[in-house]
Computed example of a mutant assay.
Amino acid sequence: MVSDHYVEGYRLLLGLNDSLQFLKTIPSNSIKLIVTSPPYNIGKVYEEKVKLNEYLDYQEEIAKECSRILKEDGNLAWEVGNFVYKKEIFPLDFFFYKIFKEDNGFKLRNRIIWRIEHGLHASLRFSGRYETILWFTKTDNYTFNLDPVRVPQKYPGKTYYKGEKRGKPSCNPLGKNPGDVWDIVLQDWEEQIWNIPNVKANHPEKTIHPAQFPIELVQRLILALTNEEDIVLDPFGGVGSSALGALLLNRKAISIDKEKEYIDITLERVKAMINGTLKIRKIGTKIYTPTGREKVSQIPKEWTNNENN
């Protein structure tokens, strides 16, 4: 099923279907950016857990369609975590690199680290606190806009100390390249990583989706890898975070999901965006740091009592 929606100048195409089947209906060489976070095959409510090789076979078919529909100067950003089987970790970015690079000819430009400060606590291994974004291009002629995602210089007053440029500023006045480990909290210069909170219970964007993509994260990819009016596609769209990120930046959006409930939520979120009531964590918002005065950040009395006994 395809639902084509026009809302006050915004163009949003929603597909209620299996991702692979829907991708086959999209014209070749028509999409500028494919950005998504596919199911990790870990048994979430929206996926049926299968053997790893079956999961990868399906993703291989997805990748072939992505290669077909992506423009020659297009980009693909694939955000993944780990598959876990019998308490063993299988890093999905390792498998997806082979799928996109070796099997479909994509070229890897960056392996971006996205740190997640909060999540499930492990007891048999170190708790996982990051996921990766594989940024691929279809060719060597690809869209990349650095200026919109620059961050302030650490030492803006630094100058050349010798040569013809001695005494002149040695850094770009628009800011520096954030690198492939990018800290969105600009005040924290020591940890240059993509430090964008994952969408948990107290996140302003939280819906019923158990693994929701933060709009702030996808917007940075959209700013760097597309131009205005380009088409951004998410083959595993969930509740529309990628679509919203695109629409907010004057891009066109296609979002695909097999769950009608998620498609309905996407439409409601788009309507909220239009009327100005959409709850969103804006780009560059400083991550909250507990001061010690909050109840949840204080040492429990039971702990201190035990120390005194």
Rank of each mutant, 00 (worst) to 15 (best):
L217F: 06
I231K: 02
E302D: 13
R109V: 03
D230L: 03
N104S: 09
P27A: 07
K101H: 07
L92S: 02
I196F: 06
W114V: 01
G43N: 05
I113N: 05
I265F: 02
R251E: 05
A224H: 00
T159R: 15
I42Q: 15
V199S: 02
D73Q: 09
V232E: 09
F126W: 12
V239L: 04
G43P: 03
K158S: 13
T289I: 10
V218T: 04
D183Q: 14
Y10N: 11
P27D: 07
D57V: 09
L233G: 04
F83Q: 08
I34S: 09
I287M: 14
E229R: 09
T291H: 09
N104G: 05
K206C: 10
S255D: 03
S28T: 11
L92P: 02
E294G: 05
D4H: 13
G74P: 00
K176I: 07
A253P: 00
F96A: 01
N202Y: 06
Q21P: 01
G43R: 00
I89C: 06
A63S: 09
T159H: 07
T143S: 11
S37A: 08
W114Q: 08
V2A: 12
T132Y: 11
K107N: 15
R281Q: 05
D4V: 11
L248R: 13
P152F: 06
R109K: 15
Y40V: 02
F236C: 02
E191V: 07
T143Y: 07
I116S: 13
N177E: 14
R269N: 06
P156Y: 05
E79H: 14
S241A: 11
D230M: 07
K206W: 09
F22G: 01
G175E: 10
K165F: 14
L52S: 10
E307T: 06
D57Y: 12
G128S: 06
P173H: 11
A246L: 02
F22Q: 05
N110F: 08
V45Q: 14
L267D: 08
K165M: 12
Y6D: 11
D147S: 08
D103R: 15
V232F: 09
S67G: 13
S28R: 13
R125A: 09
K176S: 10
T277Y: 08
A77P: 03
D234E: 05
G238Q: 06
K168E: 14
E261D: 10
N141L: 07
E65L: 02
E61Q: 11
D147K: 12
I116M: 15
G167V: 03
Q219L: 06
S19C: 12
I265V: 07
D257I: 00
N75P: 06
I133H: 03
T207W: 00
I256P: 01
E65C: 03
Y262P: 01
I112N: 06
F136M: 02
N172T: 01
F83L: 11
V199C: 02
